[in-house]
């Protein structure tokens, strides 16, 4: 397990600058809260909704580029020459992505607690919402990672958008069951439809399904990646 944690920590370290800029977004949101929030709390809520959508997009971004960046730079050779399997490597990357997006969701949660809590936003539900959001981010990441093992980053991102988007589209048109297929939309929907009046709810079953699918997609990614030749760039 230690090599996996080392890869995860290394990934988070490598992504410290993207994470810094993501956190600037949250800081910007907090600044909105400092500038006379009483006048227009809906602005703060709108940014909260936007950030929820963006965080899932960041999940796609990190998932699509993680494996490819290591292969393109040839750094993957030194890592996989050690006594670690491809499945451990993918798990390390996924945990690294989880760590980066976890920090983002955590900061977002704290800011929302401070900024929206004073307008009656239900804090308990908010934090469960943050867990749901983190699950949605990791789910898109693991799905994108599995596509990125055999597709270039852009195509992996498009494939993820398509696969996660179809159930979302069906759910949007009223098909309740499709929410559970790849529940990215199901997990994020309550956050993007959140109101200051606490009337929104997130189904715990969706979070559970999300985690099962994260593990499933990690297994798929590992299976595909371990059967493929490492496509490192020529010297």
């Amino acid at each position: 397990m230690r090599p996996v944690l080392l890869i995860a920590r290394n990934f988070a370290r490598e992504q410290r600058w993207p994470l810094f800029f993501l956190l600037l977004w949250v800081v910007g949101w907090a600044v909105v809260g400092l500038i006379d929030p009483e006048r227009n709390p809906d602005d703060a809520l709108m940014i909260f909704r936007q950030l929820a959508v963006y965080s899932v997009t960041f999940g796609v971004f990190f998932g699509s580029s993680a494996v490819q960046a290591d292969q393109r730079s040839r750094r993957v050779l030194a890592v996989l020459s050690k006594g670690i399997s491809r499945a451990q490597y993918i798990l390390g990357l996924l945990m690294g992505i989880g760590f980066v997006l976890g920090i983002f969701c955590l900061c977002m949660g704290f800011t929302a607690t401070w900024l929206l809590g004073r307008f009656g936003f239900q804090i308990g539900t908010l934090w469960f919402g943050m867990l749901a959001l983190w699950t949605a981010c990791l789910l898109t990441s693991s799905l994108t990672l599995s596509f990125s093992t055999f597709l270039p980053p852009l195509f992996a991102a498009i494939a993820t958008g398509t696969l996660a988007g179809i159930p979302a589209l069906l759910a949007f048109r009223g098909d309740a069951i499709s929410k559970f297929l790849i529940p990215v939309y199901g997990l994020v929907e309550p956050l993007i439809a959140a109101e200051l009046v606490p009337k929104w709810q997130i189904r715990p079953s969706l979070v559970l399904i999300g985690w099962v699918e994260i593990i499933l997609f990690w297994m798929v990614a590992s299976w595909i990646f371990s059967r493929r030749d490492l496509a490192v760039t020529a010297e």
Partner: peptide, 29 residues
Amino acid sequence: RRRVGFLAENVALYHRRAGSAIRFYGGLS
């Protein structure tokens, strides 16, 4: 592979401090 040392042509390593990088690769071993 834990009993093997490998140096690739045009080696590329993560940009860390030298000591930290070697500890990282040692940890992976």
